[in-house]
Structure formats: structure tokens, C-alpha cells
């Protein structure tokens, strides 16, 4: 009796917690509202199944608890029922998978007009590289990394001359413009994660991974490293600052200017712009 009641409380309590808890996702700041929607669909389907299963169990525990004279029903199988349940489950699973795969297709298909930027994670800070006026990033190689060239740019590549490097700082992005972030690490695995963007992808040394998104509102958002990368892992933070196009351009012009100035032979730090 008490057991059945507690089971009911667990089911109902979980639903109530879900509805009233103050802990919920951060307000979204990117185009991935689809992901949020898929999560909501999944919450509904799984929540209904959870409540149904637990309540049915509670009912059984109450209704069929041991009492003098009770005898269990002997019924090894019930093929019809078993097949029905299998089919219904299959349909429910498909109802979650289909939208999921559909959105995944979008998630990995980068729009043609996306701007390439580079996110460079190393133990334990974030750096960034933006294409200058030519709109293109130069090639790079981990083996070229040196104090003068912290991101390992290929200086022989003409595209490298206008690349804007921001070491250990803030990433500025224009609002409503699709961004393709190329992710690169020179040392261990890291993960570029901005909760508000719903975006997350590992940086893997030895290869370049990518992720794309369109920031949809201005503001400052936290970048976290979400792949264990050593003792400094929780301190590996950064900021994305999403700005109106005009503000962004102003900021970029300034960076490009200092970046060019830095490239003159007498500078020690190459294209590095300390933030």
C-alpha cells in the first residue's frame, strides 16, 4: 500500500519537478531552436512513457499485493499483446528519431554564405583567428608554432597577411550572419561549448573539426571547454560577444589595422594582437 503510494509520488513528483523547477536551459541565442524543439518532443514522449510505466506498476503493486487466498494468473506468453507493445514502441522511437535525423542533417550542412573563423583551444585558453578583408583563412600547421607564431600560421601563404589573431581573448561575431567555426587544437582534446548557442564540438589535435551556427541576438556569452583537458579544464573559459553588424565592423577594422601594423618587420609578436 505504502509502496504503491510512494511509486505514485515518485512519478507525479518527477513531473511536478519538471514543471516548476527553476533549472532550465539558458535562453537560446542561435538558430538551433530546432534542437530545443526536438528536446521538447523527446521530453513529452519519454515523460508520458515514464509516468505510464510507473503508474501501471503502482497499480499492480496495489491491486495484486499478496493477500490470503490470492493466486497468481498462469500465463506464460501473450503473443498479441507483446507484438502490439513492440509496434507501438517502434512508432514512438521513430517519432523521436525522424525529427532528430532531420535536424542533424541541417546541423552538419554548412550554408554557403557562412564565414570561416578559427577557434584555437590550447591548455588552457581560447584563441581565435578571423579572416581579414580577403575573407579567407590561411593554412596552418602545429609544427610551425613558436613564440612568434602562437597559432602556427603558414606565413608563406599570402592569405596569412590579413588574418586577425586574437590570443586568449574574446571572440566578436556579427549577429545574424552564419559562422563556420573551424576548430583546432595543438595539444590535447578540448571542446568548444557555448550553452546559449546550443553548439558543441571537440577540438582534436591532428585534425580540424567544425561547427556552424548563426548568432541570433546580441550579448556576451560564455565559452566553456567541455572536454576534459587536464587540471586547468574548468578554468578554460572565454567569451563570445555578438554585436550588431556596424559595431562589429568597427571593431574588426581596428583589429585589422593593428594587425597590419604588427606585421611590420620590427614587431616581435607577429600577427598577435594581445587583447
Amino acid at each position: 500500500m505504502a509502496v504503491a503510494l510512494i511509486l505514485v509520488l515518485v512519478a507525479v513528483g518527477s513531473v511536478v519537478f519538471h514543471l516548476v523547477s527553476p533549472w532550465w536551459w539558458t535562453p537560446i541565442a542561435s538558430n538551433w531552436r530546432y534542437i530545443d524543439n526536438t528536446i521538447i518532443i523527446t521530453f513529452w514522449i519519454t515523460g508520458a512513457v515514464f509516468v505510464a510505466v510507473i503508474l501501471f506498476m503502482a497499480y499492480c503493486v496495489y491491486r495484486f499485493r499478496h493477500q490470503a487466498g490470492r493466486q497468481a494468473h498462469y500465463e506464460p506468453e501473450n503473443k498479441r499483446l507483446e507484438w502490439w507493445l513492440t509496434i507501438v514502441t517502434g512508432v514512438g522511437v521513430a517519432a523521436m528519431l525522424a525529427p532528430g535525423l532531420f535536424v542533424w542533417q541541417q546541423f552538419i550542412t554548412v550554408p554557403d554564405d557562412a564565414t570561416d573563423i578559427e577557434v584555437f583551444g590550447q591548455q588552457w585558453q581560447w584563441s581565435f583567428r578571423l579572416p581579414g578583408p580577403d575573407g579567407q583563412l590561411a593554412t596552418s600547421d602545429t609544427r610551425l608554432i613558436s613564440p612568434d607564431n602562437p597559432l602556427g600560421l603558414n606565413r608563406d601563404d599570402p592569405k596569412s597577411h590579413d588574418d586577425v589573431v586574437i590570443e586568449g581573448g574574446e571572440l566578436h561575431l556579427p549577429v545574424n550572419r552564419p559562422i563556420k567555426a573551424l576548430l583546432r587544437s595543438p595539444d590535447v582534446l578540448h571542446n568548444f561549448y557555448v550553452p546559449e548557442m546550443r553548439a558543441k564540438m571537440d577540438l582534436v589535435p591532428g585534425q580540424i573539426s567544425y561547427i556552424w551556427f548563426t548568432p541570433t541576438r546580441t550579448g556576451t556569452f560564455e565559452i566553456l571547454c567541455a572536454e576534459l583537458c587536464g587540471v586547468g579544464h574548468p578554468q578554460m573559459r572565454g567569451k563570445v560577444i555578438v554585436q550588431e553588424e556596424s559595431e562589429y565592423q568597427a571593431w574588426l577594422q581596428e583589429k585589422v589595422a593593428t594587425s597590419f601594423a604588427r606585421l611590420t618587420p620590427d614587431t616581435r609578436n607577429g600577427a598577435v594582437v594581445p587583447d
Binding site: I39, W104, F107, K200, A226
Partner: peptide, 14 residues
């Protein structure tokens, strides 16, 4: 089922 459904895993993973 959240984590297995690839795109839903993106915000939740790690």
C-alpha cells in the same frame, strides 16, 4: 533516448 538521438545530444553531451 535524448543522448542517443544525435542532434539532441549536442547540447547535452559532456
Amino acid at each position: 533516448l535524448f543522448l542517443g538521438n544525435v542532434v539532441v545530444d549536442v547540447p547535452l553531451s559532456d
